[in-house]
Design a protein around this nucleic acid. Sequence first.
DNA 1: TTGTAAGCGTTATCAC
DNA 2: GTGATAACGCTTACAA
Lengths: 365, 365
Amino acid sequence: MRETGFLWSATVFIHGIRDARSVSDHLQRGPETMKDVTIQDIAAAAKVSKSTVSRVLNDTSAVHPDKRRAVLEATSRLGFQPNAFARSLASGRSMTIGVLTQIIGSPFYDAVSQGVIAGLSGTGYSPIFADGRWQRTAEVGAIRALVGRRVDGMVLIGGDIPGTELANLCGTLPTVVVARQLASEQHHCIFMDNVEGGYLATNHLIEFGHQDIAIIRGIADHRDATDRFDGYTKALHEAGIQRNPALIIDGDFTADSGVHAIDTLLSAGRPFTAVFAANDMTAFGARLALHQQGIRVPEEVSIVGFDDQAEAAFMTPPLTTIRQPAREMGWQASRALLALIDGQPFESRPLHGELQVRESVARAA
Amino acid sequence: MRETGFLWSATVFIHGIRDARSVSDHLQRGPETMKDVTIQDIAAAAKVSKSTVSRVLNDTSAVHPDKRRAVLEATSRLGFQPNAFARSLASGRSMTIGVLTQIIGSPFYDAVSQGVIAGLSGTGYSPIFADGRWQRTAEVGAIRALVGRRVDGMVLIGGDIPGTELANLCGTLPTVVVARQLASEQHHCIFMDNVEGGYLATNHLIEFGHQDIAIIRGIADHRDATDRFDGYTKALHEAGIQRNPALIIDGDFTADSGVHAIDTLLSAGRPFTAVFAANDMTAFGARLALHQQGIRVPEEVSIVGFDDQAEAAFMTPPLTTIRQPAREMGWQASRALLALIDGQPFESRPLHGELQVRESVARAA
DNA sequence: TTGTAAGCGTTATCAC
DNA sequence: GTGATAACGCTTACAA
């Protein structure tokens, strides 16, 4: 017997508030609250003991076929739903994995989450997603809430609280950090090689004969952003192209920053034939700004993005970009965590981005 | 004392699987499992009874300031995290709201969820998100899981299991359905007027002198899609424009369907000067296809979308579209649900889309 | 104001 | 195989 369903939960823990007392008193269909059916009711209906019911439900030891059948029958007849709270309380194991996400609207994080779900599916463990919304305090609160839920392990996707604080919060809880690179050895991280990605993107431009390649960077202290920038620098260096400070513009991963970057670039007057945007959203903004200035893409200026989000393929022209193995990262993270929980050592294969060639890059004029 | 954090949980309920026994035995830092600190420990440390601890933690009745202080001190010193399971088990109330979402990658659903979170924040209730992934069985499983978690109420966003089945699953549980319109009176629905939205979009085109307006519809049996189409029809009718079957193309809300629709339209040979796409993704696809055929937007063909997702403002040209009050829908849903739980009648103000004028529409040639 | 004790619905440990 | 019965950690009458 196997019942599947995906359950996401967002929790706000608030102590000291008990303002909803009338809850179970006035249900929709009047005051006649339908009492939940419990394992006890099943036991009575099947004329066996609670223990036996538990045994057949969990398949934890052999029971007589007849009784088994009786229990199953009663279960479905009464529409019994085991109480998850009681279950975890008694067993000590919550069979639940805490996942910290950052709601950023970016399909990237969605994809990572999906990977986690996929990796956990069929293992008996259930992910519980907590949202840090890219805010330090919310993030700490979210992790606390996760711990309060007695998760058996955690997957932290992104976020930016410092490693030491993380160590404090998580304690001995098995934890895997995704899409973020922490210095300390004690943290288990799964991340893509962003330097390589930046290199791939820039090099593609160079191969198309571009020399004056502008870069719109991501958030300044964001490791992903600095790594991609390093990749850009490396590619330039290898090709013997002098890096030009005038072509290095700061951004923050938003489309707006892409627009502003182009404006800045244009008003500075330093000519450029290509742009490497720190992510697709930035690329979208850049492309729009170029359009508004009457500059053709890719004929006059080529663009490369980073992420390969769904909309990238439908930009005009379709955006050449670096595809992040988001789903796979999530998958790997969950498998690694499971191993960790089981007492095995942490292991992960390095992940690589792939250049997704489309039509936003043309040969330099 | 107030502690906040957003917690999302995805759960796969699997009966009969108990294959992870070694969990708590082998924690990361060796076999010396750090026992969770309980309310009992706090009681001992603060030299009071469990009840008193509970009282100060929940602010449920007055306690002596000294003891109070002692409890609080012990709580933070020992890093006590109340066990959520035990709490709900004992109180009967889970203080938790089940939210059924459909992972569709669409920012629209994200926004609705955010609205729910916002509406619940500060009420003491916590949303628990279950994912239906637009699949009937997963949806049923998800709702079951929610019920198993003993949620105090449910918000169902989208989904497509029939109303009667819904009634069965939810039983007497207070429930609000968002972004979906159910016929039966017994369901409480919060939705936008899609007919009006479709009308607004089409009428905008008509006001710009367009007569030959193509429409790329959404999923055929999707109420949102048919309503938008009805709005289109209505606007045409009012303007005395004959509806032309050759300009009505089926789609499925994806960018790909937008591309195909344009191809179909073009090969059919029936001229058109404007396109109303069932949603923004479809509009993106249409815009790309037009670009690839060398047809200029908006000079030769105008486009209107529906949703106003983040990328819409950065399409080239920026997409004129109907903004859905997604966040507000989520907010209203949660407030309405809270009222329902409290025994008050269901109430909701009708919601309206807004025309977001940008640059993808031009005067008809 | 405080403590004692009886649950809440399961699982787990025993004897039988 | 099966059934009592003791946890699990917390809330909540009920007494004191």
